[in-house]
Each structure stands twice: as C-alpha cells, then as structure tokens.
Computed example of a mutant assay.
Amino acid sequence: MAVAGDAAHFQKVRIQREDTTFDAYVVGKQDAPGVVVLQEWWGVNNQVKNHATHISQIGHGYRALVPDLYRGKVALDAAEARHLMEGLDWQGAIKDIQASVKWLKENGSPKVGVTGYCMGGALAIASGVLVPEVDAVVAFYGTPSSKFVDPSRALAPIQAHFGELDTYVGFADVTAAKSLEEKLKSCGVPHEVHIYPGCSHAFMNTSPEALKNQGAIDLAWSRFATWMARFL
C-alpha cells in the first residue's frame, strides 16, 4: 500500500468545466463507485489526501477524487486559510464539484457520492441540493450559509457528522447541526445527523487530540461506510 498522503499514488487529472480547467487527484479502482472528497479551508493538503486514500480502501473500494478548489494554493496558517475560504467563489466551487462528479461517471464509476470536511462539508451538503448527479453525501463539521443554499431542498441522501464541543457557531456547532437536521426532516430524503460527545471541530484529522477521539473516528468512518454502501 502506498504511504498515506504520498502524492505518488494519486493520478493527477485535468477536468474541464465551461471555459476553465482545474486539477484533481484520483486514487482507487477505476470501475469502483466514485467519491468526490472536498478539502478543508486549508486547501488540498496531505490531510485531505489521507482521507481520500482511506476512502479508496473502504469495503470493496472506491475511486476517490480530490478537486483542487483553490487552484494550487495551500494555506500555512489559519489567517491565510480564512482569507482563501472567504475568497472562494462558492458557485464556481459547486460547478467544480459537478464537473468532478461527471468526470467520475464518465470514467467508470456507476454512482458517485460527495464528502467533505469543514468548508468541504458545507460544500458537500450544498452539492446534495444543487447538483442532481450526486447520489449520496457525507458531510463532516460544516453547514452551508442559508443565503447560499437551503438544505430542506436536498435531492441526495445526506449524512452529517459534528463534534459536541465544536465552537464554530452557526457553521458546525451543535446548534448548526440541529438546525440542519430539522431542515433535512422536511425534505423527505434519507438523512442522518450525528453528534459526537467530547469531540471538537476537525476531530477526524490526524492530531494529538485524535488519539483520545479514536472511538468516535472509528464510529464515524463506520457510519460513512454504511451510508455510501447503501446508496452507491
């Protein structure tokens, strides 16, 4: 198995949408169901590639694709990450996601899900509303602005994961999680919203804190696997 986070085992592809192209990184079996994996506000770093590698090896395997929404930029600190996220064209990012889903379907994946973390989690939920080609969504600790998208109009099944101690008010805290759940109840698509006791924001990432949250991480991955297997 390739070393997690090692770019060598990813295939770099160029994806066309409208009058622009962007890079994406693909790993996994070509004819497997696809999963578009969306970055945190940092950009396409080793953390999101580690998640994609893990996803590619779940169950019978998935073909994971990480689109570079920032066009090569990767933040080194939180201030820069916030600047990059605030500068992101979210409508354009949704078009990137749609093009990524279509690319996977045109290149051997019969069905395609979308997952994401933090900013990517919010975009994953938005894609479940705005991109009809999406077959399932799993979002981690992020919700889209109500000005951008209304989750009560979701088309795809959505599963979402949040940490009980998350302090990103209105975006990923318990209040945001429960608000999302209420909206999903009204749309009629299958949905699950899970809140993990003792966990803060970004609890799925490799960090010293992750060691004490390993049970929650394992449970979240198990739920992810079950959800994607059900719909993909």
Rank of each mutant, 00 (worst) to 15 (best):
L165K: 11
L165S: 10
L165W: 03
L165M: 13
D166Y: 05
D166P: 07
D166I: 03
D166V: 05
D166K: 07
T167S: 13
T167K: 12
Y168M: 13
Y168V: 04
Y168F: 10
Y168D: 05
Y168K: 08
Y168P: 00
V169T: 13
V169L: 07
V169R: 09
G170W: 03
F171C: 01
F171P: 03
A172T: 01
A172W: 02
D173A: 07
V174F: 00
V174A: 07
T175I: 09
T175A: 14
T175N: 13
T175G: 10
A176K: 06
A177T: 03
K178W: 00
K178N: 14
S179Q: 10
S179E: 13
S179V: 03
L180Q: 00
L180C: 11
L180H: 05
L180F: 08
L180V: 02
L180W: 03
L180N: 05
E181D: 15
E181K: 11
E181L: 03
E181M: 12
E182C: 02
E182K: 14
E182S: 14
E182T: 14
E182I: 05
E182L: 11
E182H: 09
K183H: 11
L184P: 01
L184I: 04
L184Y: 04
L184K: 00
K185Y: 08
K185L: 11
S186H: 10
S186C: 04
S186G: 10
C187A: 14
G188K: 06
G188H: 09
V189W: 06
V189E: 09
V189M: 12
V189T: 15
V189P: 03
P190E: 15
H191M: 11
H191W: 12
E192Y: 06
E192A: 15
E192W: 05
V193N: 11
V193F: 10
V193L: 13
V193E: 12
V193M: 11
V193A: 06
H194N: 13
H194F: 15
H194Y: 15
H194T: 14
H194S: 14
I195F: 01
I195H: 03
I195S: 04
Y196I: 09
Y196V: 09
Y196T: 08
Y196H: 10
P197S: 10
P197Y: 04
G198I: 12
G198F: 07
C199T: 12
C199V: 11
S200R: 06
S200N: 13
H201D: 05
H201W: 03
H201G: 04
H201P: 04
A202S: 15
A202Y: 00
A202F: 00
